[in-house]
């Protein structure tokens, strides 16, 4: 019998994969996901754009020609200069300057940094919360499930920007009534933004994860774990969680774009990041005041930067959704 079986091994045995990073990379570049990425020029384009933003955000302080927060480096003489190619433009400020004489290009690079940071942080918060609640809801079922899902539905019936504004107001109000909490304005603003955007977006994750969990929960590998006597929490963590993360990744990408927009909206409305450390949204709001006095660049360039970033991330998200869904292929 032994040698018969060995013979069967000969038929299907692929070379034994080596574990480790190199092998992971090899598998990734051999995968259908990578292949579908390669064969879609628009996705590659979006990927490159997103990558540029990431590099700018991470290495901003070393790349940006000026430090827009260095008050000593600012001069009112340089305020409201148009882009370099226009009359009165200066080569030092390729995209012109704002009312305080800050280089707009540098401000956009620093602003993208803030926007991406808040976007990422709030997406991670929403994701962790949504995954946890979705898993519990789908796995435990019954009254717990009903409670979580009804809460999600109630929250869904309000626009998320409204929820974000509400949470924002509550937290800021709380800190105002507790002046003994010595928090500096900028940190507080970041914290409040991440919390309000994160809390307003968990529902999507929770619903998706709950759906996948309901499917996975009844699969035989989960039953096998029950038969072995694995603790339900470990089953959720080690068996179900890795198998429900695929769709979450897609939502996270699309939600990243959404979170950046929400942050920009909140900042535009004046409840976001203060102008001393502007995000893209703050820049747009500040520039908005000058739009009709002819200094269009102050608002248009940050606006374009935001639009391009969001579009690129969205395109990536769309592609990822299609690539991970075998039915669409």
């Amino acid at each position: 019998m032994a040698d018969q079986v060995d013979k069967s091994q000969g038929i299907v045995s692929a070379p034994v994969p080596k574990s480790g990073f190199l092998d992971m990379m090899r598998r990734f570049f051999d995968s259908d996901v990578w292949h579908s990425f390669k064969s879609s020029p628009i996705t590659i384009f979006a990927g490159v754009i997103t990558l540029i933003y990431f590099i700018l955000a991470i290495f901003g302080p070393w790349i940006a020609p000026h430090d827009p927060f260095d008050l000593a480096g600012l001069s009112l003489m340089d305020s409201l200069l148009p882009p370099a190619w226009m009359e009165y433009g200066e080569a030092r400020f390729p995209l012109g300057t704002d009312d305080q004489g800050r280089d707009l290009l540098s401000a956009i690079i620093y602003g993208s940094r803030v926007s991406l940071f808040i976007g990422f942080a709030s997406v991670i918060l929403a994701m962790v919360m949504g995954i946890a609640l979705g898993l519990i809801s789908g796995f435990v079922g019954g009254a717990v499930d009903a409670f979580i899902m009804r809460a999600a539905e109630i929250q869904l019936s309000f626009p998320s920007i409204l929820i974000a504004l509400l949470i924002n107001g509550i937290i800021i109000g709380y800190f105002k009534t507790h002046p003994e909490w010595q928090v500096d304005q900028v940190t507080l603003a970041y914290f409040v933004l991440v919390l309000s955007i994160g809390l307003s977006n968990w529902v999507q994750y929770a619903r998706t994860v709950r759906g996948s969990t309901l499917v996975e929960r009844n699969k035989e590998y989960v039953q096998a774990a029950h038969v072995i006597g694995i603790h339900p929490i470990m089953i959720m963590w080690r068996h179900i969680l890795p198998n429900v993360l695929g769709p979450v990744l897609v939502i996270a990408t699309i939600q990243l774009a959404l979170a950046i927009i929400t942050e920009a909206t909140l900042s535009f409305l004046g409840v976001g990041v203060p102008p001393t450390e502007p995000s893209l949204g703050t820049l747009i709001r500040v520039g908005n005041d000058y739009l009709f006095s002819g200094e269009w660049w102050i608002t248009i360039f940050p606006g374009a930067a935001l639009a391009i970033l969001v579009l690129a991330v969205n395109l990536l998200g769309d592609w990822l959704r299609d690539a991970l869904n075998p039915k669409l292929r």
Partner: peptide
């Protein structure tokens, strides 16, 4: 009675008679 092994995948059908490994 058992036939050892399983049917080859489409990607690696052996040369000659497809049944030869079994």
């Amino acid at each position: 009675e058992q036939i050892p092994g399983s049917m080859p995948r489409l990607t690696d059908i052996p040369q000659g008679c497809a049944f030869n490994p079994r």
